[in-house]
Nucleic acid binder design. Structure first.
Lengths: 179, 179
DNA sequence: TTAAGCATGTAATCAGTTACATGATTCG
DNA sequence: CGAATCATGTAACTGATTACATGCTTAA
């Protein structure tokens, strides 16, 4: 079910706070929702065009010194489309975790290989935890009065808890592994 | 990177323990790796055929009473293919979490809607935690001597820790939400 | 008899990534 | 001057789901 793309809503959501170009949007996705979402140009630009055709966005050329950019702004219809999507309960995503898949079949690999799998995972989880801690500090310091801030912090909080849980798990798993 | 399908390896991995039909494999995926992986018939059957063409699997017809089934067994080449995949470090998956996406844009929805989002999430996380606890009991009771058991339990352990972290987060988030 | 489960498969469709193409501007 | 960054896009490909098609067997 729900094989509908969510790309339109990511773009509408970000543009609901601030007008931006496609290029800016790509960067904004990475900066703001990057720890739980991603978008590629190949989806982004065609979606922007489609949303404008549907009246959810309007664009204006902007050329000040640098290369001409196309800045998109959300329309009332766009806000309605966003609100409509927010009102629907998200379908649970089909899970896909390749690390766990390899671990599950770990019996068929040399033990030291599985050990390394977990060690590499642990390193990634630690990097992720540090990154989220950094982002949280930034949000707390740099946007003390943004009304969206609570929601941003809540998503970061889950990210941190999940990263911490993965770190604790990887450490425990390494202790339980043979050799 | 790594847009290669992992379907072949899921099938090889399951068949490395026990020969099965495509129908059985679909059920086995749900039963064993279902909490972090999924496969559809549309991927499964063509992949089985391809793997047999490549010499990684062999099939035999089996008709005992019920409808004829095609049972697949892994070959030495298949085991090598599996080992080869296990030896490679998995690429980190691009994250996609629709619940967090909706929460991130929660400022643009009525507060009670965001509250419900979290309540529904909490309910799902609790169901998931209970399901994993049940699976763990089953594995501990029913397969006390399977050599793969440690690896199965490790994947379940992460699932439980993540579910618990999500539950704690959702409760805390509900307390921080306005209204 | 009829519904549920066993069993295998294909066609249509789509979402999404990657690689490629192009060119301006800015900074070291 | 060259590299990095700004900026916008398209084409090719493929992974994957969903819906559909078919028909047998078994138990209520």
């Amino acid at each position: 079910m729900s094989r509908r793309s969510r790309t339109p809503y990511v773009l509408l959501g970000l543009l609901a706070t601030e007008s931006m170009s496609g290029y800016d949007l790509k960067a904004a996705v990475g900066r703001t929702v990057g720890h739980f979402w991603s978008e590629s140009y190949g989806q982004l630009y065609p979606t922007l065009r489609r949303l404008e055709e549907e009246g959810a966005l309007v664009s204006r050329q902007e050329d000040g010194g640098r290369r001409a950019r196309v800045v998109y702004s959300i329309t009332p219809q766009g806000r309605e489309m966003l609100a409509n999507w927010l009102d629907r309960t998200p379908a649970p995503a089909l899970p896909r975790n390749e690390l766990l898949l390899k671990l599950f079949f770990g019996f068929f690999a040399p033990p030291e290989r599985t050990r390394r799998l977990l060690e590499e995972g642990l390193a990634r989880f630690q990097t992720e935890a540090a990154r989220l801690a950094h982002i949280e500090r930034e949000v707390r310091e740099q946007t003390p009065d943004a009304p969206e801030r609570l929601y941003w912090l809540l998503t970061i909080d889950l990210g941190r808890r999940l990263a911490d849980a993965k770190i604790a798990w990887a450490r425990a798993a390494l202790r339980r592994l043979p050799e």
